[in-house]
Design a protein around this nucleic acid. Structure first.
Length: 476
DNA sequence: ATGTCC
């Protein structure tokens, strides 16, 4: 990106002044080097989002921002329903409520390393992964609707998770306001055999080691110590979310004209929040959020079973679960007034600061855990939401490393088998049904997660708490 | 991301 088009506010905050129909400025939170490496398309997309009706404050981009469908991935934008604000299927993304959860294990590095291969194999055998993978649970129509309404709470009620997990999930594991009637039978059909599956692409399950602590006080509150073994799960709403996104995107392109909305880009198809289709999408998307929460809960259940095969006395407790493709109704202060806003986070993590009422009592003083997934062979990070972040971008932070290369380009440069061998030499065991998938996800196809996280910390979006490195990765 | 194109 041409940095000369931006105004420097600080080393980690840059502004695009509103021009040509932009209602608000654009704000990018990133270091100069990360911005120089961003595609020019990201600039275009940030400015296009700023042209949508009812946008409040600014169109934001997180340090891991890259070119997405309509909105940039790493984009955050909030809309005011009282000012004609819109909701956009492309602003949420296709993999609705894709997210990360991290589990404590209580295992030592020695325990895991002495059983590294066995653990990798049993996890790979137990957790279905890959494109089109199906699970051991099959939902009839009634159960499908119960799942779409109940989320992780539905899974726990059926013995597929712990009650204690629920307070460690955004929305306490159940997104209110889901409307399964707004989800097509086709979307439900695609999902009925896919519960408890990882999926493909950048989705994974990782066994990780805590290698660095940056904030002892918050780490202690989160239950993180140096050399701890954690397990992180990254996946979303599978075929259901994708189908909902596809269908509503088409409908919103058509309906935009009816509502007098001029789209700066077809991919930014959207509808007024206070419109029939806007409300329908909201109900469907909330169902997909519950689908992703239930999916991660079931995968957690399967992971607990798998780990018990090798370590019978170990039980995994949930640290936290974050979603990073959502649109949520939240209260934020705008010019000194509390406003109800619909906050789109696409490839961006909610990062509420200390004291926020949405956080459970056990985490409220520390701030929300922000779980940042790396790539195979590189680090993941745990951060904490800050008070400052609430003012900067509605309490939001980055979500991962962010791609810097297309999947196609990656498969031209690398072979999956070589990547797996290289990582094995570094002590990281990979298990995947797809060699090509591994090549597409090669660590070097991503930005340096260390730079991304440092920018998020320095910009004030979140505070670095701990760094984790992978030992085992089950890759979709 | 995705029954990797209805």
């Amino acid at each position: 990106m041409d940095i000369n088009k931006l105004h420097r506010i600080s080393d980690y905050q840059w502004r695009i002044d509103p021009v040509n129909g932009m209602h608000v400025p654009g704000i990018i939170f990133a270091s100069k080097d990360l911005i120089l490496d961003m595609d020019e398309k990201v600039y275009e997309q940030i400015t296009n989002v700023a042209r949508l009706p009812g946008i409040v404050n600014a169109s934001y981009a997180m340090p891991d921002a890259h070119w997405g469908y309509g909105f940039p991935i790493g984009g955050v934008a909030a809309f005011d329903p009282e000012q004609g604000g819109v909701i956009s299927a492309g602003g949420v993304g296709f993999d609705i409520s894709c997210g990360v959860r991290t589990l404590h294990t209580g295992l030592t590095v020695q325990q895991v390393m002495s059983k590294q291969k066995e653990l990798a194999d049993v996890l790979f055998k137990t957790i279905p992964a890959g494109l089109g993978s199906t699970g051991v649970f099959h939902l009839n129509k009634k159960e499908m609707n119960a799942m779409l309404n109940g989320g992780a709470r539905w899974a726990v009620e059926r013995g597929l998770g712990d009650q204690a997990d629920l307070e460690r999930i955004e929305e306490y594991g159940c997104m209110q306001g889901a409307d399964p009637d707004q989800i097509s039978n086709h979307a439900k059909e695609r999902q009925k055999n896919e519960m408890g599956t990882l999926g493909s692409g950048n989705h994974y399950l990782e066994v990780q080691k805590v290698v660095e602590i940056y904030d002892q006080n918050i780490a202690k509150r989160f239950g993180i110590e140096l050399n701890d073994i954690k397990i992180s799960i990254h996946c979303g709403s599978r075929g259901l979310g994708h189908q909902i996104g596809t269908e509503f995107l088409k409908s919103m392109v058509v309906s935009a004209k009816d509502y007098g909305i001029t789209l700066p880009d077809r991919e930014l198809a959207c509808a007024p929040i206070n419109s029939k289709i806007g409300q329908r999408y909201l109900g469907a998307m909330r169902g997909a959020i519950n689908c992703a929460l239930a999916n991660r809960e079931i995968i957690t259940h399967l992971t607990r079973q798998a780990v018990k095969h090798i370590f019978p006395d170990i039980h995994l407790d949930l640290l936290y679960d974050v979603s990073h493709n959502t649109c949520k109704l939240e209260q934020h202060e705008v010019n000194g007034k509390r406003k109800n806003l619909f906050v789109h986070r696409k490839g961006a993590t909610r990062a509420f600061g200390p004291g926020h009422p949405a956080l459970p009592a056990t985490l409220r003083e520390a701030g929300q855990p922000v779980l940042i997934g790396g790539t195979m062979g590189t680090a993941s990070y745990i951060l904490a939401g800050t008070s400052e972040s609430m003012q900067l971008a509605y309490g939001s932070a980055c979500h991962g490393a962010g791609r810097c290369m297309s999947r196609h380009q990656a498969t031209k440069l690398w072979r999956g088998s070589n990547i797996i061998q290289q990582l094995a030499d570094q002590g990281v065991l990979i298990r995947s049904p797809s060699r090509r998938g591994v090549a597409e996800e090669a660590p070097n196809a991503y930005k340096d997660v260390n730079d991304v996280v440092k920018s998020a910390d320095q910009a004030g979006l979140s505070r670095m708490v701990a760094k984790l490195e992978p030992l085992i990765c089950i890759k979709g």
